[in-house]
Design a protein around this nucleic acid. Structure first.
Length: 101
DNA sequence: CTAATGACCATTA
DNA sequence: ATAATGGCCATTA
């Protein structure tokens, strides 16, 4: 089943455009639960919808973080979408998506 | 109800 | 740069 918390996470994740990324932390802030970054990761781990681009969510230090089907796969997809990854890190200033309100 | 878990984070050494 | 630590919180056992 998909909880209310998960719905809030997925809804916001869907607005991240191709070529941009968000962090678990910024996503947590966007759903008005600013200290739940860890729980956000858990929710994305169980994401059942192919419509939510969960690969576009990374760590706040710029490292890529985990992925259900392997971090390698996550990196490959992000590269394909235009994200530059230097030694496992993304330039947050360059590629961060800013959530509206 | 409690305890453990994890795609996290900030601080410290 | 790495590693350890304590905190955080939804979910699950």
């Amino acid at each position: 089943m998909t909880s209310s918390f998960q719905k809030r996470v997925y809804k916001r994740t869907r607005e991240i455009p191709q070529g941009k990324i968000a962090t678990y932390q910024s996503l947590a802030r966007a759903i008005d639960s600013p200290h739940s970054s860890r729980a956000v990761g858990n929710a994305l781990n169980k994401n059942p919808f192919s419509s939510v681009p969960c690969h576009r969510v990374i760590r706040s230090d710029g490292s890529v973080g985990g992925y259900a089907r392997g971090a390698k796969s996550k990196i490959r997809i992000l590269r394909k979408e235009g994200i530059e990854i230097d030694r496992g890190h993304v330039d947050l200033r360059k590629f961060s998506y800013t959530f509206k309100k």
